[in-house]
Design a protein around this nucleic acid. Structure first.
Length: 340
DNA sequence: CATCAGGGCCCTG
DNA sequence: CAGGGCCCTGAT
């Protein structure tokens, strides 16, 4: 604790922002069925932070929600069922929302949570999967949704690079504590990732003091690119997988693995399965072959052959399933693979 | 104690 | 296009 305080003082800029939005606006959303709420808003495979970006309990989900320059608190409540989905979205803000804002937020939430995505073809396709049909049936209607902005997801992806889970957590916590914003609403205290332009005041040296290592350089360059409009999150939404891929790879600090994460999570491309990280390789080997280690190239070919344009989505279902199971039962090999 | 690899990526030759 | 270097941490 003393170390945290000392570190804060050594750094020139510390935002230490706290936001208390007192207005709330609630509106209904109707996802396209099938839609499975909990599995869409909560991903047990994601690493848990001390400084939380979101919170979940069955039927309810809270998160800090950046949209443009605005920061909102968002609570989404499940008010329907998989076959007849309905959600209540409560947006907490400092000002009263205009009708236009509500409309824009509805569109944005629908995009990020993939509410309008038609999964009936996928559901039909995987029903014929000999091995995993029951698994797919169990999670039918689950979206691979990412609920953050491209920049926020990029920051998270940066902390994942060449690091173990614990170190990723430490890096993100350190960054949030230093340049993030705490937002309190609906009895929750969550954190929001800073805006890219806010990092202009923070030097690479300052960032290095947060022990993010060489990623400090990436973060500075990326933040500049986002602040300057070099990268346009919205524009990439209308591009094909390969065009979006090419654009993302141009970003400094974005390589094959980060691009894959962004394409799938932020842009909802289900057909990206070009890169397999070493830790994923070990887990895929167990899940698909019941073996400790299968060559990555073989995994890639087999998965692409089996699931084609739904490769990444199908793998996501199988991946999340084992992490949900992990909460109920002890899976020995998995515990060994995801050592902190 | 030293050494090393870990949920990558950039840069050099 | 292969391989070294990069920040830090915890494991060995």
């Amino acid at each position: 604790m003393g170390e945290m305080v000392a570190r804060r003082f050594r750094i020139a800029v510390c935002f230490n922002n706290i936001m208390n939005p007192h207005h709330s606006t609630t509106f209904a959303l109707w996802p396209r069925p099938p839609f499975q709420f909990d599995a869409t808003v909560h991903k047990p495979s994601h690493f848990p932070n001390n400084l939380k970006l979101n919170a979940w309990e069955p039927g309810n989900y809270w998160q800090s929600f950046r949209f443009g320059k605005q920061l909102y608190g968002l609570k989404v409540t499940n008010e329907g069922a998989t076959d007849a989905p309905q959600l209540a979205a409560a947006v907490y803000s400092r000002h009263t929302l205009t009708a236009a804002e509500v409309s824009d937020l509805t569109t944005e939430i629908s995009w990020r949570f993939e509410l309008d995505t038609d999964l009936t073809e996928f559901a039909c396709f995987v029903r014929q999967d000999e091995r995993f049909a029951p698994l797919f049936e169990k999670w039918v209607g689950m979206r691979a949704a990412n609920h953050n902005t491209l920049y926020e997801l990029m920051v998270i992806a940066l902390t994942l690079q060449n690091a173990t889970v614990r170190r990723s957590q430490q890096m993100l916590d350190a960054l949030l504590g230093q340049v993030g914003t705490k937002i309190a609403f609906d009895g929750k205290e969550l954190w929001a990732i800073w805006l890219p332009e806010e990092l202009e005041q923070v030097s690479e040296q300052d960032l290095r003091r947060l022990k993010i290592g060489y990623r400090a350089k990436f973060l500075k360059r990326l933040s500049d690119d986002f602040a300057n409009g070099t990268i346009d999150e919205r524009a990439l939404r209308s591009l094909s997988t390969s065009d979006a891929h090419a654009q993302l790879l141009k970003l400094y600090g974005v390589g094959p693995e980060t691009a894959r994460i962004l394409l799938f999570e932020a842009y909802h491309h289900y057909d990206v399965f070009d890169h397999i990280a070493p830790s994923q390789q070990k887990i895929y080997s167990r899940l698909f072959y019941d073996e400790p280690l299968v060559p990555a190239e073989r995994i890639r070919e087999d998965v692409l052959k089996q699931y084609a344009t739904y490769a990444m989505l199908a793998v996501h279902y199988i991946w999340e399933d084992v992490f949900w199971r992990r909460q109920q039962e002890h899976i020995d090999w998995l515990e060994k693979e995801i050592r902190l």
